[in-house]
């Protein structure tokens, strides 16, 4: 479903060019979950951003459902992010001025794929029923992340990209959120590529990739 080959990316710095990813390749199948592990600065988020179309690789190719993303236009990327790719961030990225209900249905509405029954299932499964009319700022970190997860899955995307979704949460909350994420991703039949530096969190997922010195290795 998602395949990237020979991806390279680096950034110009005042003291020269800094390579981050060096000829990395990988593949995630439909319904599969993959953890991307590595130390700070190893390029985990960069790889996630490239796959999400938030940044452009220097070299390499990417395919999603056999559609080439290498030379995709901005419009194509926008449509993909609206309908097929979802993002979950460490700091939630919720709209602070919309209530929980509007937040979790927003992406589905923008994609024109709102399924109220499925949304209600997600709300129930994620324990958000009593929180729907509050604002994100009134929720705890764990609650906010559950809203973000619901939002990312409400339109049943093909691929969920999560960037350290439990990084801001305490251990117990992180475990709860992780369980729910895996559970909901499976319910939506989506694939998951998750960046984390925690082996404990990575253990929840089907496969584990390690990024070291810009190179990708699988366990």
């Amino acid at each position: 479903m998602l395949r990237f080959t020979h991806l390279s990316k680096g950034y110009a710095q005042p003291d020269g060019f800094l390579p981050v990813l060096n000829d990395v390749s990988g593949e995630v199948a439909r319904g599969e979950s993959v953890a991307l592990l590595g130390e700070s600065g190893s390029g985990k988020s960069t790889l996630l951003h490239l796959v999400a179309g938030l940044d452009v690789p220097d070299h390499g190719t990417m395919l999603l459902n056999d559609i080439s993303l290498t030379d995709a236009s901005a419009q194509t990327w926008n449509r993909l992010r609206r309908e097929h790719i979802s993002l979950v961030f460490q700091d939630f990225h919720l709209i602070p001025t919309l209530n929980v209900d509007d937040n979790l249905k927003l992406q589905a509405r923008l994609a024109g794929q709102l399924d109220l029954d499925f949304c209600n299932q997600l709300i129930e499964r994620l324990g958000l029923t009593g929180l729907l009319h509050g604002l994100p700022g009134e929720l705890s970190g764990g609650q906010q992340q559950r809203v973000a997860i619901a939002r990312s899955l409400a339109h049943r995307p093909t691929l969920v990209l999560a960037d350290e979704p439990t990084g801001n949460l305490d251990e117990q909350t992180a475990q709860d959120v992780m369980t729910l994420l895996i559970d909901c991703v499976r319910a939506a039949n989506s694939s998951l590529l998750m960046v984390t530096h925690s082996p404990a969190m990575a253990a929840y997922l089907d496969r584990r990739w390690h990024l070291k010195a810009g190179e990708l290795h699988e366990d």
Binding site: L54, Q75, N78, R79, L80, H93, L94, L110
Partner: peptide, 16 residues
């Protein structure tokens, strides 16, 4: 700005 960025992450193009 954060909201605009989030909207872009969610696939809203600059034209929209």
């Amino acid at each position: 700005q954060a909201t605009l960025t989030t909207l872009r992450e969610m696939g809203i193009g600059l034209d929209d």
